[in-house]
């Protein structure tokens, strides 16, 4: 069942080619917002990790920036991902430099 249809032997029309202009996403599925959400979440967690010196916040922000990197799209600008990585790594390092106590899990009431 060759897809040539009736009569016309060769369906190709080199003269009627259209270049691909990446049309806005009319495909149907809204583009997934996971990378953006994770980026914002990462920023928030690293901020509170830095301000309130909560170590588990810093670690969670590191995870968030990893996840947003994994789901990033090609046309996303890499600066945003790089900045979220820098922020979360600095949050982790800073919270350990201030006091190298081992981390207390978030459910323990002690504010380390």
């Amino acid at each position: 069942m060759h897809g040539t249809g009736t009569g016309s032997s060769d369906p190709r029309r080199p003269d009627k080619e259209h270049r691909y202009k990446s049309s806005p996403n009319t495909q149907g599925a809204p583009d997934d917002l996971i990378p953006d959400y994770m980026n914002i979440l990462g920023m928030i967690f690293s901020m509170c990790g830095l301000m309130m010196r909560l170590k588990w916040c810093a670690w969670v922000s590191l995870y968030c920036s990893f996840i947003s990197f994994a789901n990033s799209r090609a046309n996303d600008d890499t600066k945003q991902i790089l900045s979220s990585f820098m922020l979360s790594i600095s949050a982790v390092v800073m919270s350990y430099l201030q006091n190298p106590q081992p981390m207390s899990p978030p459910w323990s009431p002690v504010f380390v």
Binding site: R12, R13, P14, D15, H18, Y20, N71, R73, A74
Partner: peptide
């Protein structure tokens, strides 16, 4: 062309 780690696109043109 790779749009993201899990989305690849291919544009073909020039047909009746």
């Amino acid at each position: 062309s790779k749009d993201s780690e899990s989305v690849y696109t291919l544009w073909c043109s020039g047909r009746t």
